[in-house]
Design a protein around this nucleic acid. Sequence first.
RNA 1: GCCGAAGUGGUGGAAUAGGCAGACGCGCUGGACUCAAAAUCCAGUAGGGCUCACACCCUGUGCGGGUUCGACUCCCGCCUUCGGCACCA
Length: 834
Amino acid sequence: MGWVFIFILEGLHMDYNFKEIESKWQKYWDDKNFYKADEAGDKPKYYALEMFPYPSGRLHMGHVRNYSIGDVIARYKRMRGYNVLHPMGWDAFGLPAENAAIKNGIHPSTWTWNNIDNMRAQLKSLGISYDWDREVATCHPEYYRWTEWLFLQLYKKGLAYRKKSSVNWCPSCKTVLANEQVVDGKCERCGTVIRKKELEQWFFKITDYADKLLEGLDRLPGWPDKVKIMQRNWIGRSEGAEINFRTETGEEIKIFTTRPDTVFGVSYIVLAPEHPLVAKLVKGTEYEKTVNDYIYELQAMNEITRTSSETEKTGMFIGSYAVNPLNGERIPIWIANYVLMEYGTGAVMGVPAHDERDFAFAKKYDLPVKIVIRPEGENLTPETMTNAYTGDGIMVNSHGFDGMTSGEMLGKISNHIEEKGYGKKKVNYKLRDWLISRQRYWGAPIPIVYCDHCGAVPVPEEDLPVLLPENVAFTGKGESPLSECEPFVNTTCPKCGRPARRETDTMDTFMCSSWYFERYTDPRNEERPFDFDRAKYWLPVDQYVGGVEHAILHLMYARFFTKFLYDIGLAPVDEPFTNLLTQGMVLKDGIKMSKSKGNIVSPEEIVAKYGADTTRLFVLFAAPPERDLEWNDQGVEGCYRFLSRVYKQVSDMKDRYIQSGWDFDDLDDEDKRLRFKTHSTIKKVTSDMDGKFGFNTAISAIMELSNALNDYTASKREHANSGVVSELICNMLIMLAPFAPHMTEELWHDLGHKDSIHRQAWPGFDESALTRDETEVVIQVSGKVRGKLNVPSGADDETVKKLALENERIRSFINDKPIKNVIVIPGRLINIVV
RNA sequence: GCCGAAGUGGUGGAAUAGGCAGACGCGCUGGACUCAAAAUCCAGUAGGGCUCACACCCUGUGCGGGUUCGACUCCCGCCUUCGGCACCA
């Protein structure tokens, strides 16, 4: 069935032969290295970038959308006179390659490079204007050599370190994951429920950059608020105080609170069940067994239920008391499931009167409620409270602070605590250090050697790269393939020369993608990751385009890396991406396209059937870039029809087309109207392209222009003004060029132009063509539209008012009622209020 | 629960420093071309009323209020959908 349909389409549209046109120009651009970028010339630079893909083997519609958006931006900016860098590469390390190896026996390297070849060809078939000379692949030794080198720089600065801790383990991927890669307690990649495991792993101290990462967000007005908010929440900075309570046996318990103003209202303390003090305090007491049973019960629960806010709060008294340093009160020590060892100090103070969670907990376990903040003009009593009072008010029961507002109290209490030595001011973050070890083969090796005498020793920089060995067994069982590869593991210590073992974990692939946009500025540098001056020329990326799913992961890691590189003098900027566009998903039948749902539309098939220009046009026309896009086969055909129509329209005009020097001296009204349309379209499309990226409305404006030309020629026939028509066609093609680069290039040459349409300057509009003798204004009577009126352009308010009131139709609506007011909006509207 | 975005014809979506709601595309209906169909071209297409017809009138942007000469747009209170976070002390 399929081929019959294609045959019919082709048979009847020989005039617009996209197959021939597209392959012809793709070859031309490829041969000429047409979109090559260099640092020469005095044009201002523009760095347009789309997130590079994982080379899965095939592009999906999301890629097509992503790269079409980026390409339109790159092409538009070139036409606006910028020196544009628009590169592409491959985020080529990662698990699927290894899984393919296990399943099919293909080496991850072979699998990956084959996929890259496929996808590169697909990108070329879409006509995306990349500088292919700058292509990078993170799995290339000349790339990961510098990934390893960057690891060493972090190590030198103490930002890469090893520690044993409870980490996220995905039993299916057989590797650990960063916190950011765990979604709802499941592996972000495969959806398997993760387990906690105690392991010694490598971390990057991204937490050292928490404040810088937060501060930088304030300097990114070109980012969507949504993404900035997500990052802020993820970093989760909260200011408060760490207060030292002491048990009656003299043990210190540090608690963290953001509400030190309520410290006089503490009626109990809660430790995380894993808190090291718990075992110590219960040892040998009557509580030991019940407490241990409770902890055991909690540990048996899986991570999701354990940490869900839905799970009921439970806890128990552990038999000890602590003393509140501020008022000397004796308070019981509890443990509870809702207190997490990983955050703050793993211990909190319970203030039931002024914290919802504490209130619920206190009610459940019958703990005292002590009020220390009274809302102004109201009285609270513990007996009648049904909720915690979390607002501001006047301090009570707080010795030395009574009568103050809670705001004043908050300003003073932390200093007071510090002065008295009860504790200190403290800032806490939700952000954790970035775990980068992966127990997998297909990644950049961590350049560390373990020596029995010297400990962990970094591989000397001149010995980089630590190459991945080729001959490795992929069984899918046991540990990482590297750890079973003896020739790789066994080495000598760079320090003392004695036998040593290599680190067999590889780095998280997010590390590779955290600096690729910097490598693009100088992709073949063999001395350094990239040259400072070349990077200084191109960076920062002016426009970054990608899916919102990277709002936290990639975009935060890349910012962290850039800040680090900036701090050690390698990068010229500390924020890599000035403007960010997060594109929406491509949906089919209202849901995301996915293999499991069986609703995939293959870009290859669409391009084969309708051509790259149509495909690009559709994904840009069907929705604004940041919104989700509903796939619609008939919509694609609509775009195809439009391009065919333009092709025919322009081809029909070939003989009468005038390249330049159009004469507009002798125009009638119809000619003037068409010129008006040409120039108002230029104005509209230009404003849509600039900043807002309203590609859907830009395309619809070009469609309107084509329709206007159609109506004009239908009415004028052989009397059509060649100058006006030529001007329209010339500008229409240039404006359409970023969207449909092949067809416009073909037509451009058909019309006799010798240079490429993609080297043309973006048109400006002629203000004089936009001025008209008469303007249509709307007349309202009491806010309802009752008529329209042509008035001379630039007529003053009084004249317009007079004309409106004289209008026969309008008078019938006024109907002798007294006129209360007349509002005139020049050039637009008159409202007569009766 | 908290944070964020969005609700407009049959449909994807236009129009917001407050000023003609429904641009453009899809679909649908009618017509031209054709032996016929496909493709293409032309016309119509928010709903309702009235009319032989043109004209015209009323109602309409999730719901309920409000501000205003005038509200899809601003304010208050809801509802729904989608994303993100989720015991963070």
